[in-house]
Design a protein around this nucleic acid. Structure first.
Lengths: 243, 243
DNA sequence: GCCTTTATGTGCGTTGCCGTACATAGCAGA
DNA sequence: TCTGCTATGTACGGCAACGCACATAAAGGC
């Protein structure tokens, strides 16, 4: 999948502007980068980076989105962040760490544009708009991770499920989300049954519907009314930094 | 307190090397920065930055340490990170965000060296060792925050208390930590009674002793055996990036 | 020495989530 | 159509942490 890149042509790379970070670059910087951008198609569940593994590319998602996860020794997992068209996967490459202790996994199938670490670093080291944008995005991601830390501590599964559904919906081009309760449970770091119970309550009040791995968002307004403050904090901080 | 700075003299600023980030700088870069470094004495509970507030300085702690906290609308709080002599407070300034939604509060009284945002940014924009060091430290901090997110979700109060005591001990020059159960409860985001119960169990097994806001670390080995894996993950990643 | 304040200890009922077990219901392939 | 697999529903006991109330104990002011 990750290998279905075409010969670089401008039609492909124009679509890279579907990623909001790339879209925010001035034309001059984007022109320098576009030859290094290759489209990649991600499938659900695909592992983009393994924890501590070698990172060859950074990825700018357009229609895909990717979870940043940590896996404990006992195998239990929890998500710390979620990256879609508003961000970039692989910040460790420009932060200088080369790798991270986290796994990155595709949570929504779709497209991304990848760039070799070296090409990205060359542009980063120019110290211009690209660097500025990457660092501001990184700060937004830090806010997201921080808020996840606090949210995990202080809010219920039901509230966290609302937040997670809203975040995922924001990164998805449709009201249909393809994911099982089991999958969500690994993201929220809770039991599958806990997700089933919470999802059931959201269904009873008409916020969502679902059957076998197909969740439909029916009433965003009501979800927004139900979610904890964390959702809005992260969103506001993101628009302050990159809006 | 924050105003007891002396006329800049080299004796003072030599002590700035007590901060490990400043210590890791090559002499040439440090020489450029040293005239901008002013010693500051922090008292327990002092607020360094307010959430969303103006940030005039970055701070390089030497003997003090500072908590990064988030406060919910209902007043409940939880810590996302802890910064001492190995780090710097105010990363939002070089990340380009100017502020953050977090509060920074002094958790251990002591010294730090502060630098005006502009002077710091001038050096950062040179793109040399200073920038490199700041970014690598930021990545280490991201790991700490991430691990806190996961730890909050998956581990018990007792395990998290062990982790927090060990982290704090690492940043303190003595085995005596001055903090009440009440204070710790705000950091861990739990009830005061929960801290009392957990602390009591650690005392019964001889790991710590305490009376009225004075905690003494008696048996680090046993604490290490009791803590969740999160402690070591953060420490290892920190040495990988900055060791 | 007494009084006040602050820190810690303890009890009690409740809740959220866990671990486990098993039942049902869609869907796919033989 | 039957079979098997996967996704979801439900139940039960257990435990960790909660909210609340109040008891004790150490330090400090007078």
């Amino acid at each position: 999948m990750a290998e279905n890149r075409t010969a670089s042509n401008s039609a492909d790379q124009g679509e890279a502007r579907g990623n909001r970070l790339l879209a925010a670059l001035p034309a001059e910087a984007f022109e320098r980068l576009r030859v290094h951008l290759d489209p990649v198609s991600f499938t659900l569940g695909e592992v983009v980076y393994e924890s501590g593994g070698h990172m060859e590319y950074v990825y700018f998602p357009t229609t895909s989105h990717i979870s940043l996860l940590y896996t404990m020794i006992d195998g239990s997992t929890a998500e710390m962040g979620l990256v879609g068209q508003e961000g970039v996967v692989g910040i460790a490459l420009f932060m200088g760490g080369e790798t991270t202790p986290n796994r990155a996994m595709v949570q929504g199938a779709g497209l991304a544009f990848r760039m070799k670490a070296k090409a990205m670093l060359d542009e980063f080291k120019r110290g211009g708009d690209f660097q500025h944008l990457m660092l501001r995005y990184t700060q937004a991601l830090i806010t997201q991770i921080s808020q996840t830390a606090v949210c995990n501590r202080l809010h219920t599964v039901e509230q966290r499920l609302c937040r997670w559904l809203l975040m995922t919906h924001d990164l998805t081009q449709s009201d249909e989300l393809q994911m099982t309760h089991e999958f969500i449970s690994h993201m929220l770091g809770v039991r599958r049954e806990g997700v089933t119970m919470a999802a059931n309550r959201l269904r009873e009040t008409g916020m969502i519907s679902y059957v076998r791995g197909q969740i439909r968002i029916l009433d965003r307004q009501q979800l927004m009314a139900h979610v904890c403050e964390c959702y809005q904090v992260v969103k506001d901080e993101h628009s302050r930094l990159l809006g």
